[in-house]
Design a binder for these strands. Structure first.
Lengths: 195, 195
DNA sequence: ACAGGAGTAGACCGATCTGTCTACTATGCG
DNA sequence: CGCATAGTAGACAGATCGGTCTACTCCTGT
């Protein structure tokens, strides 16, 4: 990846994430990044392709961050707690590499490009699927019954997305903690059923 | 409320909801609604005030719909099931008055006006609080212990928002059903602890 | 009768948008 | 050397944006 290209993507993400895609013009990205307009259109065919590159950039950054956080947790229920502890750090701006919290970038972009067959919307969908897969692999270390693996993964994804929404729309800085409590309660219930 | 004013609000909502606020211009709303520009600026000081009125409109419509659906359910666990059955109908376009599903309008607007001190963002926040209060009153009919009322209300709100996100971003038409199963499982766990 | 409020149609304004283009520079490679 | 590549600065084009304004019509209440 070219130096200028990366610079554009990073600057564009920062602006898109805090103001929204439609609210940020090409010229603002250019002046903020100090890159010439011709260079932008050399690397990208247009704004949509830039947004697409920004989505891929954030997808990688976020995925890598979450994966490393989950890898740190010891296998077992701590994986579940670790997921929501990570979210808690994110919501409360304790993760520099994710930038100050403004909700989930992919939910935000989906809101602006709402049609399901829109390319950008589909990229957002794929990100969510990748993260869900990451969570699924954690749940699989929990020695639940196969049917419960599916159900509990679904529950964790629901609670995670719910927490993101609460934290962003309502500014509920405790959203991740609440979700954690609920998730652990569910896990407890799952175990007691089995024993 | 004047006839033309209502017409503007309804048309604006339809367009904002399916395309996003920034993506829809004043002129599109005017030509779609067949109202003159001067009339719009007679009723509203500007676009922001129109958006604000649209938010209030949707808040009332949504709140009334959900309340009537919850009132229909028989008191007890059926209230919880009824909540997610209502969401399921919404997600799958079986509720005409809510228009075809494009996620939660308030989450979408929050994404476009991301700063917490933005007026429109705050209106979205208030809507969520109103709905949360509605859910809380249902939970209070469940004869749980006081501490559990809070926790279970939080859990239901998290699952509800999570289901909305899954349904919109990932197009998961079963999101409400999954959330319902999780909620009932939680409720079951709560009861078994108490008995 | 008539004043004023609500409405229409649409020209117009300045700003801003995405995207193109010209002219020029620096660098690295065969 | 010669030439393509990546870059800068910025004028420019055409469209669209939110918002103002003029000129006119219709209706209603005093």
């Amino acid at each position: 990846m070219s130096d200028k290209r990366l610079q554009l993507v990073i600057t564009a993400f920062k602006l898109f994430y805090s103001k929204g895609v439609h609210a940020v013009g090409i010229n603002e990205i250019l002046s903020e990044s100090g890159v010439a307009k011709k260079t932008l259109y050399h690397h990208f065919s247009g704004k949509e392709e830039l947004v697409s590159a920004v989505l891929e950039f954030r997808d990688q950054r976020f995925h890598n961050w979450l994966k490393s956080r989950l890898d740190q947790a010891t296998p077992g229920p701590d994986k579940v707690g670790g997921l929501f502890d990570a979210l808690d750090d994110w919501f409360n701006d304790r993760v520099d590499e994710l930038l100050p919290f403004h909700g989930c970038f992919f939910i935000n972009v989906s809101a602006e490009f709402s049609e399901p067959n829109n390319l950008l919307h589909q990229l957002c969908c794929r990100h969510k699927e990748r993260v869900a897969q990451l969570i699924r692999t954690q749940v699989e270390t929990l020695d639940l019954e196969p049917v419960e693996v599916n159900a509990f993964t679904n529950a964790l994804c629901l609670l995670k997305e719910g927490a993101v929404s609460l934290a962003h729309v309502q500014g509920d800085r405790l959203a991740a903690i609440k979700a954690k409590a609920t998730a652990l309660q569910l896990l407890q219930g799952n175990k007691s059923v089995r024993s």
